[in-house]
């Protein structure tokens, strides 16, 4: 019962993480401008990584009640699994700290380098061009 609950919760977390990663990848490919692409990369990437890693950290405990036949064995398994779960949570905290920082640094580098953001005039120009092409055919 405990095992099935833990498996379902961690599976849900990992699947959610994969869905967010899909969204981030699609956004990275399809957005029109450098700054918008950075939005999708920074946010989607960090969130999906944290969800997947928390799911794996929770999954460590899934066979806690199955193997132990005595109280000392139970504590041994619990200690080992807790150690790995803490390490995985530490990785996720680290990525949560550092990935938005590097996104911020890259965006500042892009701004200082002179990249123009995609404004409404560009979008209207695009639409006009597409409209003229479809009208001409």
């Amino acid at each position: 019962m405990f095992e099935i609950t833990i498996s379902i919760i961690s599976g849900a977390l990992i699947c959610g993480g994969l869905v967010f990663f899909l969204g981030a990848a699609v956004g990275l490919v399809r957005f029109p401008d450098f700054y918008t692409r950075m939005h999708s990369a920074g946010k989607g990437d960090t969130l999906s990584t944290i969800m997947i890693l928390l799911g794996i950290a929770l999954y460590q405990f899934h066979d806690l009640f199955r193997e132990a036949h005595s109280l000392e064995e139970f504590f041994e398994h619990f200690k080992i699994e807790l150690l790995v779960a803490i390490k995985v949570t530490a990785i996720s905290v680290l990525i949560m700290l550092t990935s938005p920082t590097s996104t911020h640094a890259l965006m500042e580098a892009g701004y200082d380098d002179g990249m123009e953001p995609f404004t409404c005039e560009d979008e209207d120009a695009d639409e006009n061009q597409n409209g003229k092409e479809s009208a001409g055919q």
């Binding site: 990663f21 950075m38 960090t46 990525i95 990935s99 996104t103 890259l106 380098d113 990249m115």
Partner: peptide, 17 residues
């Protein structure tokens, strides 16, 4: 631009971990 590629490499790196 080259900065696009660096953003994508950063993303691949995080996912590799």
């Amino acid at each position: 631009t080259a900065l696009d590629r660096i953003v994508a490499i950063n993303m691949i790196g995080t996912k590799t971990a």
